[in-house]
Design a protein around this nucleic acid. Structure first.
Length: 417
RNA sequence: GGUGAGGUGGGUGAGUGGCUGAAACCACCGGUUUGCUAAACCGGCGUACGGGUAACACUGUACCGCGGGUUCGAAUCCCGCCCUCACCGCCA
């Protein structure tokens, strides 16, 4: 309970709210326990009696049997109310628990908003010097006819850009590059469904927290995935692993769909924030003892990608107030996009500890045969839209936009002009 | 979408409404035995929520796809839903 209070405080909950939540939780739970004890006793009585009734019938003692029957009938009435009570309490408890965010790791800084995030690794080298003629990516996109925002808006709506020509090829190249790098790092590549059911969305914690951020198909009660994390992690729903299975590493390229309700202004200009974007996601299922070591590994992996793409980047540790609902510790990666002179978030690498596995029922047996919850981690490696924006802006020259060398083997051109 | 069959423990697979938390076999774990291996034999082998314990042990309840119902009593009967398989229809 102290842990919950501490966790919520760090996330910026008000003291009174915390008190109320805890009070409800404890009193409901106590009630449920005492309830269950009485109820179990009653049920056990019924089992005993019905056994006896059967016996009595065999012996032909109808009268005794029917008087017992009456007694069972009375007990059943009582059980009914206990059962109902139990159900109510359980849904109350579940609702509270589902609404509680994960507990932040000790290293998570205090703070209310993104302004309080801690820069743990800054960019020390100079930024690209483009002079005064530098264009933002949406103008470059138009100039070279590689992304058509208007056409995307015409077909679907704003925030659904249409990539064409070398823009389209650049995306394909990046996806292949990211997947190849993930494979080299030992991740199994999969192609998951892009829609998930309610159970899956609950298990990874998108529901109930992100209800309004997902596209929902009411008719079939399916959700368009907001990130590959959801289908990938749900591979492991309801599974008991052996200790020797760890770590499990899976990667996938998927489009991601987000409603981004409430966003506006320069934040959503061009590729900065879109409703559909491509992402290569990496996920690890870990032994609890190793998860922070693996988190560092994943951070390293993402950093390596940015270095290879020759993009200026910095790494932030999210503060309590900015930390995602499901995460215990998150590192964000931002790249500097020189046309806008702006940091763009391109990756988020998180350790969820047992938050998701609790909902997933993803456990493992230790050598004594006891089951424990595993840990889950994931990260974007990487999210495409903003990477494309940064590549376009940072690499622009009077002759055209130069492609990063590392993409050479994936592209049949070296410059967009 | 239509019709039919089916969903039982890690797997295969029994199961007349009470003696079934569930046979048997396989897998798995522990043990005995024979030079090793193999085999044979013996024992163990689910999850959740309670009680209990220092921790075990032990113990109550629930769970045979999910949710309801009938009954003194349900894996077993009834209803709804979901899923799987087969065939048909439609279709990239």
């Amino acid at each position: 309970m102290d842990l919950i209070a501490k966790a919520l405080t760090k996330r910026g909950y008000k003291e009174d709210d915390i008190k109320n939540i805890l009070h409800d939780l404890i009193s409901h739970d106590n009630k449920r326990k005492s309830n269950q004890q009485i109820n179990d006793d009653l049920k056990s009585k019924i089992r005993e009696y019905s056994g006896q009734i059967g016996q009595l019938y065999k012996e032909g003692k109808q009268d005794e049997a029917s008087s017992l029957k009456n007694e069972v009938g009375e007990i059943k009435e009582r059980i009914k109310s206990y059962d109902e009570n139990d159900k109510n309490l359980k849904t109350k408890i579940d609702n509270i628990l589902l609404s509680l965010p994960n507990a932040p790791h000790d290293s998570v800084p205090h703070g209310k908003s993104e302004d309080d995030n801690e820069v743990i690794q800054n960019w020390e080298k100079p930024f690209p010097n483009l002079g005064s003629s530098a264009l933002p990516h949406w103008e470059l996109a138009k100039k070279y006819n590689i992304i058509d925002f208007e056409l995307g808006a015409f077909i679907t709506g704003s925030g659904f850009p249409l990539f064409r020509n070398k823009g389209s090829k650049l995306k394909r190249a990046l996806i292949n590059f990211f997947l190849d790098e993930a494979e080299k790092a030992g991740y199994e590549e999969i192609r998951p469904p892009l829609m998930v059911n309610e159970a899956s969305a609950l298990a990874t914690g998108q529901l109930p927290d992100k209800e309004g951020q997902m596209y929902h198909m009411e008719k079939d009660n399916l959700y368009l995935i907001p990130t590959g994390e959801v289908p990938i992690t749900n591979i492991f729903r309801n599974i008991v692993l052996k200790e020797s299975d760890f770590p499990l590493k899976v990667t996938a390229y998927t489009p991601c769909f987000r409603r981004e309700a409430g966003s506006y202004g320069s934040d959503v200009k061009g590729l900065n924030r879109v409703h559909q974007f491509d992402k290569v996601e990496i996920v690890q299922i870990s032994h609890p003892d190793d998860s922070y070591k693996l988190l560092d590994q994943m951070v390293k992996h993402v950093e390596e990608l940015l270095i290879k793409l020759e993009l200026p980047y910095r790494i932030l540790r999210l503060c309590g107030g900015d930390l995602g609902f499901t995460s215990a510790l998150t590192y964000d990666f931002e790249v500097f996009s020189a046309g806008q002179k702006k940091w763009l978030e391109v990756s988020s690498v998180s350790n969820f500890e047992a938050f998701q596995t609790n909902r997933l029922k993803l456990r493992y047996k230790d050598d004594k045969g006891k089951t424990h919850l595993a840990h889950t981690l994931n990260g974007s490696a990487l999210a495409l839209a903003r990477i494309v924006a940064a590549i376009l802006e940072n690499n622009q020259t009077p002759e055209g936009i130069k492609m990063p060398k590392v993409l050479k083997k994936y592209l049949n051109f070296e410059i967009i002009n």
